[in-house]
Design a protein around this nucleic acid. Structure first.
Lengths: 219, 219
DNA sequence: AGTTTAAAGTGAACAATGTTAACATAAGAA
DNA sequence: TTCTTATGTTAACATTGTTCACTTTAAACT
């Protein structure tokens, strides 16, 4: 008679940790319940005592994923020691690098497959905590300081987001030889993007040499 | 004894047509072999006489999909009756609208899931046929005409592509109330993007009022 | 302490999926 | 006509998520 380890203790937490670790390495499609039961040494159906179904686990992963994403990408937006323009440059870089470092998680958070779960989560969460709101606020600061064109800050935030999302997606979905081209590509992209956002005839203050060189008023 | 319809005739073509039609309406994930066998009135394994496996069918769909994509998005790049700037504006709009009209196909063509198939296909195909090459050539024309900044045309093409891919993905993957915001959003995005690409002190010729208003030299 | 109860495990079974193998039929070439 | 081959069929398989009836154990309540 086999002695079973009933009452594992913190099985729920283990499932979450294992799932997060798995997604750090492989696509969420390959995360099966068998992977989880094998890793925890439990039976295939043990997980159903802790999550309603697989989607409920994914929901937790997405929740944790957004926390991780916010923690790793928004820091400069709240860092008042940084010049405003630099906030955009550095935050954008953190964004793309997060996607590069966590391609499977990024796809899980921003892809279509689990959009229904994401929407449910984001509708519950306090929207003011999100990175998007912080971005929008930074844009509004830029407008007040005369650095950015006075325009709908929501639209401008979307423009910036779409650009970063686009380059991130192209990179992690296999359209670019990442290590070769990434650095130069990001700078070109950022220059182009910001040229369209900054107000004319304003001297840009930045500690990043590239930005000083490129974004000075032309007249 | 049931009379079976052996030798369907053009079953392979039917599978392809049905699959394309299916993806026009639903996600490729839901395209199962059962869907195909039911739709053709054949057995579950009939498809294996025409395709090595499911991936081989998907490969055909992707191939057809790229043909469709090129046919529906690149027309203005070769239309010499259009002003150069308008080519970008109109092509970008066709791009986003293709994604909006064919979200499932767009995701299939540009997503990660079948990237291995896409890469195999694109490595075989003549690269000069692709829309990207046409975009790059148009950029080079713009540089020669002094309309666009003289820079690496490959990088500039990536910037434009990333921007359009980004906004398209955000829209079809559920981040925007599409009908509400799309038109205005696209214009803002395009203005911002193009401001960063055009050469300064050059009068832009366009038949699109928006572009005339926004992109004139400021001095 | 002893009993009850509920939480947290187990294994067997389901239907749906892609896939393969053995078999059946029909069409065309010899 | 006969043989071969293309093109179909059915049955079976492993893997997937999921449910159900059962078992065990920790803790709560006399």
């Amino acid at each position: 008679m086999i002695k079973h380890d009933y009452h594992h203790g913190n099985l729920k937490e283990d499932f979450i940790t294992i799932a997060m670790d798995f997604i750090a390495k492989e696509d969420v499609e390959k995360l099966t319940l068998k992977v989880l039961s094998d890793a925890t040494g439990t039976s295939r159906s043990a997980i159903y005592k802790h999550f309603k179904n697989k989607d409920a686990l994914i929901e937790t992963i997405i929740e944790n994923g957004f926390d991780k994403f916010d923690a790793e990408t928004t820091q400069y937006l709240h860092d008042e020691s940084k010049a405003l323009i630099d906030k955009f440059y550095l935050t954008g870089k953190l964004y793309v690098e997060f996607a590069k470092r966590n391609p499977n998680l990024y796809r899980l958070l921003f892809g279509k497959k689990y959009a229904h779960i994401r929407e449910e989560l984001l509708s519950i969460k306090d929207e003011d905590c999100s990175g998007f709101a912080a971005l929008q606020k930074t844009i509004e600061d830029g407008q007040k300081q005369g650095i950015l064109k006075k325009d709908d800050s929501y639209k401008q935030a979307i423009v910036i987001w779409a650009t970063m999302h686009g380059i991130s997606s192209l990179i992690i979905d296999g359209f670019m030889d990442v290590e070769e081209i990434y650095e130069a590509m990001y700078d070109t992209l950022f220059e182009t993007l910001l040229s369209g956002l900054v107000a004319n005839k304003v001297k840009i203050i930045s500690t990043i040499p590239l930005l000083n060189k490129v974004l000075q008023p032309t007249n």
